[in-house]
């Protein structure tokens, strides 16, 4: 198949692209290596260190950000692909210094311990509540053709892409339920 195997580096130099990146409402022109992921661009070049690198393989959700309002894993997103998209990181959830309701609920419900997974949980939860409002089904929705409620089972299933090594899950579910209902 095309492009397979390790033929070794044929290009001596990295290949770069000049793009305009829109993050949390700010447009920033930057030059990126085509290999760079959005997670690395945010953390290493834009000083936005909210999104975390847990696994770098799409398995933990610590790097979750929103692209055009949808939650994605920034560790599997190449920066060069999102140049005219609207990116929101955890730093962009609060408005005018006031916590986003999801952030406030996480504080109130004690929905974290070390906090490493929290930025990803927050971005994921904000988008997930909207997915439910838009009527998207999940794997635990009994009738896939009908709407879903935001009960504990639905929240757990829909948040399964976000792991928490501290096991704060019970309070995370409570916080999301508080916001969603």
């Amino acid at each position: 198949m095309n492009g397979e195997g390790n033929s070794g580096p044929v290009f001596a130099d990295p290949i770069t692209a000049d793009i305009l990146l829109s993050v949390n409402g700010d447009e920033r022109p930057i030059t990126v290596d085509t290999r760079e992921t959005l997670l690395d661009t945010l953390r290493e070049h834009l000083d936005l260190i909210g999104a975390k690198k847990g696994c770098d393989h799409g398995q933990c959700g610590a790097c979750t950000v929103l692209v055009d309002g949808r939650r994605v894993k920034s560790c599997l997103t190449l920066t060069v692909t999102v140049d005219d998209r609207e990116i929101t990181t955890v730093e962009g959830l609060a408005v005018d210094g006031a916590l986003h309701p999801m952030q406030a609920a996480f504080v109130e419900r004690d929905a974290f311990q070390c906090g490493y997974c929290t930025p990803g949980q927050l971005c994921s939860a904000v988008a997930m509540v909207r997915e439910v409002a838009d009527g998207w089904p999940s794997a635990v929705t009994a009738d896939v053709s009908g709407p879903a409620a935001l009960d504990d089972d639905e929240i757990r299933e829909r948040m399964s892409g976000n792991l928490c090594r501290c096991g704060a899950y019970v309070n995370i579910v409570a916080a999301i339920k508080q916001v969603g209902s």
Binding site: G61, R71, T77, E131, W136, P137, V144, S145, G161
Partner: peptide, 29 residues
Amino acid sequence: LAAHPLVRRRYPMLAQSVVAGASGQIRNM
């Protein structure tokens, strides 16, 4: 695909298979 009304109504197993895979973030990508 999984959220599409006709997929859900006409081919429930197709919608169910998609939401049974990966995670919300990965399915968005």
